[in-house]
């Protein structure tokens, strides 16, 4: 039982951490918002594992639902809503100083 919980926690932790890295590295802003939502969902499942079901409910409803809604509407309002993307990496990894304007 405890062994199973450890493996589930390992899986969820790796998923959460990789989604968090993806938020910073992916170029498309919609994908970044989706990755932030994945971070919130993984966190909610981890809360269930930690015997905090009320926090898990709130995190899933508010953190993954309402927050991604706000961020997606912000992407739309800020004019960053672009589906196509030729490059998938963000400017965090680009070393030249003359960046293309993304807004």
């Amino acid at each position: 039982m405890v062994d199973l919980e450890i493996w589930i926690a390992l899986l969820l932790g790796l998923m959460t951490l990789s989604a968090a890295i993806l938020v910073l590295l992916v170029k498309n802003h919609i994908a970044a918002v989706a990755a932030a939502s994945v971070v919130s969902l993984g966190l909610a499942l981890l809360f269930v594992l930690m015997r905090a079901p009320d926090v898990a409910m709130t995190e899933a409803a508010v953190g993954a639902g309402l927050s991604s809604l706000i961020l997606a509407l912000a992407v739309k309002r800020l004019g960053l809503w672009r589906i196509d993307g030729k490059t998938t990496r963000s400017s965090l990894l680009v070393t030249n100083t003359r960046r293309e304007k993304d807004a």
């Binding site: 912000a74 992407v75 400017s91 965090l92």
Partner: peptide
């Protein structure tokens, strides 16, 4: 570098 990503 981007302000929206800073919020994320």
């Amino acid at each position: 570098h981007h302000l929206f990503r800073i919020v994320l």
